[in-house]
Structure formats: C-alpha cells, structure tokens
Design a protein around this nucleic acid. Structure first.
Lengths: 211, 211
DNA sequence: GCCATAATCTGAACATCATTAAGATAAGTG
DNA sequence: CACTTATCTTAATGATGTTCAGATTATGGC
C-alpha cells in the first residue's frame, strides 16, 4: 500500500505519464509533509502541487479549494496521532494494576509526546482546520482508547464513584490543554508527568472529602 | 485615552492629514477587529491598512512584517481575555467559602466564556502567533488571578495537601483544554460546568484514597 | 480494435497578497 | 528659517489562490 502509493500505476515505467494515478493521496501526503516542516500558515497549494510534480490547477480536480485540502490533511494528521498512541500502548499489555496504570500514563504521555514531536501537525489536527463537523469525538480512536483504559482503571478500583461520570472529559481536556500550553511556550515540557500524576490522584480519591 | 485614540491629534479637524498620529495603535485595533470577524488565516495586511485609511506600506514603519503585527495583536487579545476575566470577578467579592468557590468557578467560566464569545481572538492569543518567547506565564494576569483564587481556596480548606503542588498547572491545563476542544467542536459547550465541578472535587479530596 | 465520453492534467490569466525601494510630506529641532 | 528625522505614498516585484479553455489520457460499449 505504501509501495503502491510511491509508485502510482501510471508512473511505473511510463516516463511521460500525463495522469498521475493517485494525485489525491500524493497531494495529501505532500501537504502534510510541508505543514509538518513549515506550519500551516506558511505553505501554499502551489508548492504542494509543484513538489508532487503537477501543475497547481491539477489540485482543483481533487479538492475544491486549499481549505479542503488542509482539512483533509488535518483529518489525516489526527489519525497519525492515533497511530502514534497505539504504538505507545502496543508493548504495554498485562493485567496487573501496575500495568493498567502504565497504560494510562502512556496514553497521556503519547498524546503530549506526539504534539511535542510534531507541533505543526498537532496544531493542524486541532486548529481551525479541524474537521469539526464531520469529525465525531465518540468515534475517534483517541477517545476510544481513553474509554478503554478508563474502564480498566475503574476495574482495578482507581476511579472513585464520584468521579466516574465526567472522568473522560476531565482527562481529555487536561491532557489536551497541557499539550497546547507546552506548544505555546506557556508551560515547560516537564509538566506532563506532574499533570498526569495529579490526574491519577484526583480520579482515585475524589469524593472522599475530609470533612 | 480611548477618545484620544479615536481622534488622533493630526486628524482632529485637519482634513488633509499626512501623518496619522497613532497609526501603530490604529493598525493593531483594526487587525484585531478583522481577526475577530474573519479569523487569522483570512485577513491581510493590506486590508488592515486600507481600513485604517493608509497605504499598505505605511504599516511597515511600525511593524517589520505581517507576522509581527499579528503577534502584537495576539498579545493584545490575550490582555482582552484578562480584562474579560477581571470583569467577571468584579462583582464577586465576599469572604465566605461560598463566595470563594463562586470566584473559582467564575474564573474558569470566564476563560471558556471568552473563548466561546471570541473564538478567533482566543485562537489568535494562543495559536502560533502567541508571543511565547517574551510572554511569561508567571507574570500574566490570568495566571496571577488563578494563583490568588487558589490561595483563597486553600484558606477555606478546599485544597487537599496532596494536591497543592501542581494545582495551578492542573487547573490551567484543564480549562484551557476544555476551551480549545469546545472551539474545535470536539466537546459540547455544556461541558464547562461538569469539568469545573470535577476539578473542585479533585482539588478538595485528592490524596484521601480509600485503600 | 475503435470510438465516444468522462476523467484528468496543463497553460495562461486575474485579482490579491506581502514586501521593498525611491521619493514626497510633515514635524521637530537648532 | 534650515535641516534632520519620522511618517506616509506610489510603483513595482514576485508569489499566491482560483478559474477557464483546451490538451491528453483512460474507460466502457460496440
């Protein structure tokens, strides 16, 4: 698949290929590459097209305008992040309470980790080009992963009943905010772990008021 | 002052004024107005200049480039948010525990409230044009306000010792994340209150683990 | 195999954009 | 007043998003 993408059917050997074969995908990949390198605000449709080896107007047969291309790239970047998170969880199986907690931390750390590693892509995925309308939180992979780990956390008794209702939203908001503030230079990078730790503590004990 | 800004000295009566008098500020105000209306990605230096009644190149005597103008606008937008938060706290004095908690909620609600009311300005203030380098969290007014209310919360016993260390960072991250996710359409607007409630609960009881 | 039709790409064009350079005008200062 | 400096304008350059007419190739029916 990645090979088929690198060598579109019409270009495998055919030197003077008029039709590209997989322009839509090629444009998307190159758009993401440029965004990742220079940031959304510094890339042009023309540059994307030229780098792919095609005239600027060719892009308009696959995307109605630049914004649509960027929105598609944003959606793809979002999936990249999900991939990144999945890879982070991959080797962390195990049923013990410790293993579960490790997974929870890895989830948060990989979220922020992706943002730090690919700040421009992270900003693209969540910025004004976030395909908010047709993007559904409930069905998104990061959300699903969070729900799964949260379920496990609950099973080992790490979530206090008083906290269950809105735990997912609290966690996502917190981690997402941390990532953004770090990218903006408003929080030092080291704050990820304390924040996650605080979250764990909060989840486990909330409702148990001294009183 | 706002009057002096509306009527720059060289224009008060002088019809053929060559010098504007307060172009720097006028450009900033108009830039913010346009960003607020159309979003950063959809405004041009030229439009800002023309709307102010000046040639595009005039702007370059006050800002080295478009990015600098936008960064200045971002800084100003950040202060606008601080103003908004201050107004929200203005009428909420009182020394009772209830009053303190009301202030805490108002702080978070006004943060998200500003974002919902001026999404483009909020994005400008925190996006890629966030003056991260010369902007200092510790000295920013939102941070100071948070610290003050947190201090009060602590005094009425609403912050568990185990939570004190990173409470500010946890709170800011959470509220900031909520605001951003709401703007992206990934969280419904009603989630603000549950999140704040969860935070209150977390702060008060963390550390008190059932065991 | 052949041809019509649709899909895909190019080239040239347009208006707009950021930015710069050279020169005009006004303000401030001796 | 003269002179220096700050401020603004005009005109130009090269890049950008987008459109349109036309060229090229693939596709599916015969």
């Amino acid at each position: 698949m990645s090979l088929a993408r690198a060598l579109p059917k019409n270009r495998t050997g055919d030197k003077s290929a008029y039709h590209h074969g997989d322009l839509s995908d090629a444009l998307l990949v190159e758009a993401k590459r440029l965004v990742n390198k220079y940031g959304v605000e510094n890339i042009s449709l023309r540059q994307v097209a030229v780098n792919v080896g095609v005239s600027p107007s060719a892009a308009y047969h696959h995307f109605p305008d630049k914004e649509s291309l960027l929105k598609a790239a944003a959606k793809s970047a979002f999936e990249d992040m999900a991939d990144f998170q999945e890879r982070a969880l991959q080797d962390l199986n195990g049923i013990s309470a410790l293993a579960v907690r490790r997974r929870f931390r890895a989830l948060g750390q990989s979220y922020v980790g992706f943002a730090k590693k690919n700040p421009h892509l992270f900003r693209l995925a969540f910025g004004p080009y976030c395909a908010g309308e047709d993007m559904n939180r409930e069905e998104s992979r990061p959300w699903q992963m969070l729900l799964a780990v949260l379920q496990e956390l609950d099973e080992i008794g790490d979530i206090h009943p008083g906290m269950r209702a809105y735990a997912e939203i609290l966690i996502w908001s917190t981690i997402h905010g941390t990532a953004n503030l770090i990218l903006d230079g408003l929080l030092p990078v080291e704050t990820v772990d304390p924040v996650i730790q605080s979250l764990e503590l909060a989840l486990k004990s909330a409702g148990k008021v001294a009183k």
